[in-house]
Design a protein around this nucleic acid. Structure first.
Lengths: 143, 143
DNA sequence: CTGAATATTTCATGCTGTCAAGTAATTGGG
DNA sequence: CCCAATTACTTGACAGCATGAAATATTCAG
């Protein structure tokens, strides 16, 4: 049942590997345009949607909370993020973007041209098809 | 012409982001099963296909050659890789896997189950379709 | 109220990555 | 032929990411 190492599957995995490499490359490049590292850009992007406790950030990024301390430190020292107390729990610190942080996050989204360049080669029908295939692959399809 | 930020494209980019995250996670996990880091596993995988000069490895991984020195140092200190002189050019050192390195690389490929798990949800027809879409997207399609 | 659990930070450590400088070997123009 | 430029690799210094263990402050449960 499970495709072991048949030729087709190997080809697809290879292609996905290429997509992964290309995506990373562009993400890092977009981040460095704004003097940010990839990790910093990811955290800033997360926070621009919604302020989060340090712990939650770590869960989203699947890393240790102690790691987030440093990343938020660097973002904070650039004035892109600030730590706010959580009124509901004094142990918790909420990381929230500043106005400049929000602007940077917005600019970051704009300069991530992975969306435009490779996907621009596909028609709307093809993009729809690709979406459905990826959803099924990831098990996020609505059945 | 280019899809700017339409809903469909954003969805597809999001899905690709999820694929990228999942792929990385599984790759790192497979590597750590063998006490290797992701970078070490990537280099070992490259070399298991064919011994390469340090410079070529750096080009493939898109990083500085001085970085490769350290990674190959660590692989060499574990007996997975050895440096050999290039008979044609005495400046060049070829990094080649040892027997154990080849065995580790083989085991690594086997334990990378990204191929089996998510792709297993797709039929052969769907995998073929996905392959073609990715090829077109990456501009590697045969036309 | 006390002890366990939780949220964050700090510290030590290792790996990845960059850059600049240094060594060794090759190559090409005069 | 020879010397200057180039190329391949290494080294050292430094920043960032990531982990794990220990410390602090706070909450929570019994």
């Amino acid at each position: 049942m499970t495709p072991r190492a048949d030729h087709l599957t190997v080809e697809v995995v290879d292609l996905i590997g290429t997509v992964v490499a290309r995506y990373h490359e562009e993400y890092e490049h977009a981040a460095s345009q704004h003097s940010l590292t990839g990790a910093q850009a990811r955290v800033l992007g997360l926070l621009s949607a919604e302020p989060l406790p340090m712990r939650r950030i770590a869960q989203r990024l699947k890393c240790e909370p102690s790691n987030i301390t440093g990343i938020v430190d660097r973002l904070e020292s650039r004035g892109l993020v600030e730590r706010r107390p959580d009124p509901a729990d004094r142990r918790v610190k909420l990381a929230a973007p500043t106005d400049e942080g929000r602007r940077t996050a917005e600019a970051l989204r704009g300069s991530l041209n992975f969306a435009r360049e490779p996907l621009g080669r596909l028609t709307v029908t093809e993009r729809t098809l690709l979406k459905e295939l990826l959803q099924r692959m990831l098990g996020t399809a609505p059945e």
